[in-house]
Design a binder for these strands. Structure first.
Length: 270
DNA sequence: GGTAATGTTAGACT
DNA sequence: TAGTCTAACATTAC
């Protein structure tokens, strides 16, 4: 679930539920997911503190903590999320995979969910000391068309889907949104960047911005449940009826490209 | 039981 | 050198 739009909504969820409450206990069922610091030290640093502010960078959340310079840095991996609930209530559904839990002084708790244990947690003064954060490309919703073209220019020989997926080019796009973006831009995921026309590049820029913005808007429920994309999204047909949103007679194709399952319309996407 | 899954990365390969 | 491919991580759901 967690690509840019999802993590953006996790940010709002965290801001709404996790800030300015004193941490009274911390539990972690899988301490190996907390990187570069022992869980006992992690706990010591955070006990009795409050989360002050939260921001998003790519697929990461970076959280300020009152009274200490360290930031809590969260990556959700492939199957992560957040859940806020009353303390010690039954953990149903994905809450069964609550790997890290912050208990607050109001008898509620914030759970970091991570089914496949591919997520990571850091506690660092400087977020840039996390290799991937340091190398992260610009935020797609904050760059001009001109800057976008410049990024493409530096990767002429690369496959377009590989380009979109590589966090060092642009931050926050993952497998499903790369498919959605390429569908909107009517570009076949096999294409190499240097073969794209100016109009296709413009469509790619607009498709990126529109898909991400609309996805952020569409998800009124936070967490990983109840995605409700309209049927004109490629996403709503993925792994289901596999019908092209533009034409029911077109069958979507699934193929491994850039190491991931790409789903696209071989007729609409040239 | 086999397969695929919204991420990242190291190392092999062309 | 640059770009691509594969496997690995770990676990569940269908």
């Amino acid at each position: 679930m967690p690509e840019l739009p999802d993590v953006e909504n996790f940010k709002v969820y965290f801001r709404r539920n996790g800030l300015n409450k004193k941490i009274t206990a911390i539990e972690c069922s899988t301490p190996s997911l907390i990187k570069e610091v022992r869980f006992s030290d992690f706990k010591k640093k955070l006990m009795e503190k409050k989360f002050k502010d939260v921001r998003r960078r790519g697929k990461f959340l970076i959280i300020d903590i009152a009274r200490i310079p360290e930031k809590l840095i969260i990556h959700f991996g492939m199957t992560g999320g957040l859940s806020y609930a009353e303390q010690d209530t039954e953990r149903k559904g994905r809450d069964r995979f609550s790997r890290l839990i912050f208990k607050f002084d109001n008898n509620e708790e914030l759970r970091w969910l991570n089914v496949r244990k591919l997520g990571k947690i850091y506690l660092k003064k400087d977020p840039e000391s996390v290799e991937l954060i340091k190398e992260l490309g610009p935020e797609p919703l904050q760059i001009s068309e001109r800057q976008f073209f410049e990024l493409l220019r530096k990767c002429q020989n690369k496959n377009i889907k590989a380009f979109l997926l590589d966090q060092r080019n642009i931050a926050g796009i993952g497998n499903i949104y790369s498919d959605e973006i390429l569908f909107r831009a009517k570009i076949n995921p096999h294409r190499i960047i240097e073969t794209l026309s100016k109009i296709e590049k413009q469509n790619l820029y607009q498709g990126t911005i529109n898909a991400l913005r609309e996805a952020i808007e569409i998800r009124p429920s936070y967490g990983m449940y109840g995605i409700r994309f309209e049927t004109d999204w490629l996403l709503s047909h993925r792994h289901k009826d596999m019908e092209c949103p533009r034409n029911k007679n077109h069958k979507l194709k699934r193929e491994i490209i850039a190491g991931r399952a790409a789903i696209y319309c071989p007729i609409c996407q040239k």
